[in-house]
Simulated scan of single mutants.
Amino acid sequence: MKLIIGNKAYSSWSMRGWLACKQSGLSFEELTVPLFGEDWDEVRESENFAPSGGKVPILWDGETVIWDSLAIIDWLADKTHRDRFWPKDESARGMARSMAAEMHSSFMALRKQCPMNTRKRYEGLQFTPEVLQDAARIMELWAQARARFGGGGPFLFGTYGAVDIMYAPVVSRFQTYGLQVPSFAATYMDTMLQHDWMVQWMEAAEEEPWVIERLEQPETAKG
């Protein structure tokens, strides 16, 4: 398998695809393509990118191409064992799928105003009501998952799985922008940030030479 990703410092969806590949336990080749670089337009039109419409991440599995992080998670779950990614309990699995889907389709204010940048740390920022509303909804989801199904371990549904993968970039964003969270969420974030794969991703991001200037001082940080 070959996984094509963008810059680790900035590409939240790439983080999800990469974590999914790590969770699968399958061997894969990793190819990083710098976002918005001088050759970006040419690269997007290449054979490797064509099926995805020029977006990352992209997983090539033989002649099969899978794009979009949630699709990659499901593809890898089918290839390995679904219990690697989704809870065994039916009720827990239903909630986990709903949380993953909500992350996939929602929280636009948080995404736009607080873009992922693993190399930055801000303090004392003022957030719009829309960002705070997104953060509050995420806290509500995390609290429900932990209270109802988190008894078997420190992750949202006890053991590490697809939902933790989908919310991993949110953990990174909350750390970058200094969003205040309740103690249970801070504990969960610490668990995620200390996970070996997150540490590997963050360390690799620090070593990247590429800088996207417009993401170095986002609108939220200017306020």
Rank of each mutant, 00 (worst) to 15 (best):
I5P: 01
Y10F: 14
R16L: 00
R16D: 01
F28N: 03
L31H: 13
P34E: 13
E38Q: 10
D39I: 08
E42W: 06
E47V: 15
L59V: 13
E63N: 14
T64P: 04
V65A: 09
L70I: 12
L70Q: 11
I73W: 01
W75R: 07
A77C: 11
D78H: 08
K79W: 06
T80K: 00
T80L: 08
H81I: 03
R82P: 03
D83W: 09
R84I: 13
A92C: 09
M95K: 07
S106A: 11
S106V: 00
R111I: 03
K112R: 12
Q113I: 06
Q113T: 11
C114G: 10
P115K: 05
M116L: 15
P129G: 06
E130A: 15
A135M: 10
E140V: 04
R146L: 12
R148W: 05
G151T: 04
G152H: 06
P154R: 06
L156Y: 07
G158V: 07
T159Q: 12
Y160C: 05
I165S: 02
Y167D: 06
Y167A: 08
V170N: 05
R173N: 03
T176C: 13
Q180D: 15
S183M: 11
A186I: 07
T191I: 00
T191N: 00
Q194N: 08
V199W: 05
Q200N: 12
Q200K: 14
W201P: 01
A204G: 08
P218L: 02
K222T: 14
G223E: 01
